[in-house]
């Protein structure tokens, strides 16, 4: 086994292969924000306590502050920037606008990424289930009822 303080990684981010040299300490979150200028993913706590940094790692929602970039070598990552083509909105994004599911907007990319995953996971059988499975994303402006309404609307779009 080779141990390195710096290493080269390749990640497929929003459909593009990105090869980078990283410090072993660099998290996926800092890689996205500071090295790739993908700043839509937010840093709210850097300890997995708020969900603002939620991205999809190999199709699953995770806190990117808790993933080493080195560890994500070879992975597929989707961030808020990769959810829809430029100028277009994903149905979840549209639902967030339609249902006023944000205020300051800082937690919103994480909420949207969580919602997209949530719908894929299918944990949307009741309001209570949605609320529980959306509890990993704090919103201090407290738009929780509107977020639930947006989730429910996005499910209807998907089903309809």
């Amino acid at each position: 086994m080779e141990f390195r303080q710096h290493l080269t990684v390749v990640l497929r981010i929003n459909g593009l292969d990105r090869q980078m040299r990283v410090d072993a300490r660099t998290t996926l979150l800092d890689l996205l924000r500071e090295h790739l200028a993908l700043t839509g993913t937010k840093k709210g706590c850097n300890f997995g306590e708020c969900g603002a940094c939620t991205v999809h790692l190999n199709g699953r929602r995770v806190n990117s502050c808790l993933v080493l970039a080195a560890s994500a070598d070879g992975a597929e990552v989707t961030t808020i920037e990769g959810l829809a083509a430029a100028g277009k909105l994903h149905p979840v994004q549209q639902a967030f606008i339609d249902h006023d599911a944000f205020q300051c907007g800082f937690c919103t990319p994480g909420q949207v990424m969580s919602t997209v995953a949530l719908i894929r996971e299918g944990h949307t059988r009741s309001e209570a289930e949605i609320r529980e499975w959306m509890s990993g994303n704090l919103c201090r402006c407290s738009s929780y009822p509107q977020i639930v309404a947006a989730v429910e609307a996005a499910i209807r779009v998907k089903e309809g």
Binding site: R33, E34, A37, T39, G40, T41, K42, K43, T79, I80, E81, L83, A84, L89, Q93, Q94, F96, I97, D98, D100, F102, G105, F106, T108, P109, V112
Partner: peptide, 22 residues
């Protein structure tokens, strides 16, 4: 009216201070 800042906030393109660099 729905929020005019909706599209930039739901797409992560709204810029907050820590998103900026010089």
């Amino acid at each position: 009216f729905s929020r005019i800042d909706g599209p930039i906030k739901v797409t992560g393109t709204a810029r907050y201070t820590a998103d900026l660099r010089a």
